[in-house]
Write a protein that binds this DNA or RNA. Structure first.
Lengths: 160, 160
DNA sequence: GCATAATTGTTCACTCGGAAACAAGAGTGC
DNA sequence: GCACTCTTGTTTCCGAGTGAACAATTATGC
């Protein structure tokens, strides 16, 4: 066996045993796969995926508190500060200190930000479908329902 | 009132629209949730979750090529180099240059590494169950099956 | 044989995410 | 009023992940 070895399967198939049935492990791999799939489809926008998500969230929730959005999207506050600064620098959002509680920073999309966010939202939804095209519609819905349980979000119309 | 706890209503008021039905978006949130859940259960080991996973993979696949493990676990090669260096520094694995192809580095767990890896594997499996305790057994299996499809791994004994 | 390409892994420079410490505003008790 | 604490967001520092360029080895074309 010059180079092909006696056992060709050994190279191709690594054994991961019970890990292949570990939900959190598979969750990590699947997240990486879908993230990269969606990212690779991105060509038009100069925003990272988290930035796009935050921008859309701000667009859909005007005057929301910065911390609320961070918590909902599982973004740490220090990182949210930097992320918001980048969006503000690009004039997509504005930061305003609340009058009632001057610790609070509220976020609102600018006109340009709303414009961009609308396009981003459409593309993200479309790319999501393409990136997960290995699942049919019912499987996709099933997956989302299970993931909502994992995240702890109440499912709106959950049955089964 | 604890910070992110009782103020659930305010957070729930945030509208994320179609994103809540986006599989890739929910995948990201769920991965974060499970990762942090498993991490928070970790107290005995001084290894990161990726390090633990790689160590177990090496333990279960002696003499496997470094690149093969990296590819399978979706770890980029530059990062794998550093990760492997850390494991080697802790004397959990050994790196060997292959005789047949001297570009190739093969990895094997040391005796201590095997010992640690066995414990890690057991704990990871147990913590996985605890971190995903919001799912019952059948839901968990269903989730794993769907995630395997997303990742592109053929389901072993599962008949569609 | 020798130049060229392809594979395998590493180094480098950079960005991003994280915990801890910090600043500033608001609430509480006296 | 004043000290104390909690909340909200920021700054600082560090570790981890990534792409690009690199070195070393092997395969390929002629």
């Amino acid at each position: 066996m010059a180079k092909g070895e006696s056992d060709f399967a050994a190279e191709a198939e690594l054994n991961l045993g019970e890990f292949e049935a570990s939900a959190s492990f598979m969750l990590r791999l699947a997240e990486l796969a879908s993230y990269q799939a969606v990212s690779s489809l991105q060509t038009e926008v100069e925003l990272s995926l988290p930035e796009q998500t935050v921008l859309v969230a701000i667009m859909m929730n005007p005057d929301a508190r910065q911390g609320s959005i961070a918590d909902r999207l599982h973004i740490r506050w220090p990182n949210m500060t930097k992320l918001v600064a980048r969006l503000e620098k690009k004039k997509l959002i504005t930061r305003r200190v609340s009058a009632e509680d001057r610790r609070v920073v509220t976020l609102t999309a600018t006109n340009e930000g709303v414009e961009v966010a609308r396009g981003v939202r459409e593309r993200l939804i479309a790319y999501d479908k393409r990136a997960l095209s290995m699942l049919d519609e019912s499987e996709c819905a099933q997956l989302v329902a299970l993931l909502r349980k994992v995240v702890g979000w109440p499912s709106p119309a959950a049955k089964s």
